[in-house]
Design a protein around this nucleic acid. Structure first.
Length: 348
DNA sequence: AAACAGGTGCTAA
DNA sequence: TTAGCACCTGTT
């Protein structure tokens, strides 16, 4: 039954599969990281020719498109070296691990598409390895973060244990922005369906039968008919507005890496459909600003229950309290709280 | 069948 | 500043 995952049949036969092991230098739990709701394009899969891997997912990651410079208040960044003239690309990968939590993950990709990005196989392997390390935030000391959050806060230490190895990803800026605009008053299956629809209709093939998420230019030029067919509902004009402002340069997504979080937040919120919650999600999941604390209704309820004595808590209050309590680890703390809130049926 | 889903923009105090 | 309300669409 592997065919349903697209790992056999035409796509796989067409290109040779390359596999590499990537060490993240600390615990990773793929299931927790990819199914906690921060990213919308990962699907459970069977890893090709590796029955020893207990879990695997396929999805699309940016390769060579993100550089991570230093911005005020964060650690010095690093940059991926690219052959000059190489455009940012996306590549489908299958990731797996031999136990639920490990520090090493196995990555498979289609050589043909990888060569299209890098030119030579060794370069491709090196770039993809770096891209995976960046996407899964190998630069986060997750063991230390978990210990510190648990120490700061016994209340959520249980969730820290349960979500052991959860990593906040570093998603593509534009895909992340578009995804969270689509998340407004929506549910995860629906969001995933729409993102998938845009990719398969307007994206380019990137291996495993998957397609890249279309760039803003491709979305900005769609007529209202297409947007209606994609079932965005009332979010269609928000998405269009986002695409247009990014294309026009009014909101320069690359530049947001360089400026302080508050300023980046203000710029993102110029876009119709980007309020505090969406902006914070983009900053956390797209720009890896770990000091932000996206507060939705679930988080607000959880904050009320666990910290504010059951009093009524608005998202604004929850956000301020979360950032105050957890400081530079607010993003991770928010994930653990969300984990608890989901598991706690009594939070309605 | 009515309510709800990881909010936001708009309007009115 | 903030409370109240409508909103596409798919599910339960």
């Amino acid at each position: 039954m592997r065919d349903e995952y697209g790992l056999r049949g035409r796509e796989q036969d067409a290109g040779s599969l390359a596999t590499l092991a990537v060490d993240l230098g600390g615990p990773v739990n793929l299931a927790a990281s990819l199914e906690c709701g921060q990213a919308f394009r990962w699907r459970k899969a069977c890893f090709p020719n590796r029955p020893d891997l207990v879990v695997a997912y396929r999805g699309v990651i940016p390769v060579g498109s993100i550089s991570v410079p230093a911005h005020p208040g964060t650690a010095p960044g690093h940059q991926i070296a690219l052959p000059s003239g190489t455009a940012p690309r996306q590549l489908a990968v299958c990731v797996g691990q031999a136990e639920p939590v490990t520090s090493k993950i196995v990555v498979a990709y289609d050589d043909d598409y990888a060569l299209h990005i890098a030119g030579r196989p060794e370069v491709a392997a090196e770039q993809i390895s770096e891209a995976v390390r960046l996407y899964f935030a190998a630069d986060d000391n997750v063991a230390a973060i978990e210990a510190e959050v648990a120490r700061l806060d016994p209340v959520i230490s249980g969730a820290v244990k349960e979500a052991h190895g959860l990593r906040i990803l570093r998603q593509d800026h534009w895909e992340c922005l578009a995804s969270y605009v689509l998340s407004i008053n929506n549910n995860i299956p629906n969001i995933s369906r729409i993102v998938e629809h845009f990719s398969s209709c307007l994206g380019e093939p990137v291996g495993f039968g998957l397609h890249s998420f279309p760039p803003p230019e491709k979305i900005a030029c769609q007529d209202s008919g297409f947007l209606r067919q994609s079932k965005c509902g009332f979010r269609d004009r928000y998405l269009k507005d986002a695409a247009e402002r990014v294309v026009s340069g009014e909101v320069n997504l690359a530049d947001l890496e360089l400026i302080p979080t508050e300023q980046a937040r203000e710029r993102l919120m110029r876009i119709r459909g980007v309020g505090p919650k969406v902006a914070d999600c983009v900053l956390l999941f797209g720009y890896h600003r770990l000091d932000v604390f996206p507060a939705d209704v679930w988080i607000s309820r959880a904050m009320s229950r666990y910290y504010l004595g059951g009093r009524k808590v608005t998202p604004k209050m929850a956000r301020e309290e979360g950032m105050r309590r957890f400081g530079p680890l607010a993003g991770y703390a928010q994930e653990y709280l969300f984990w608890m809130a989901r598991g706690d049926g009594s939070l309605r």
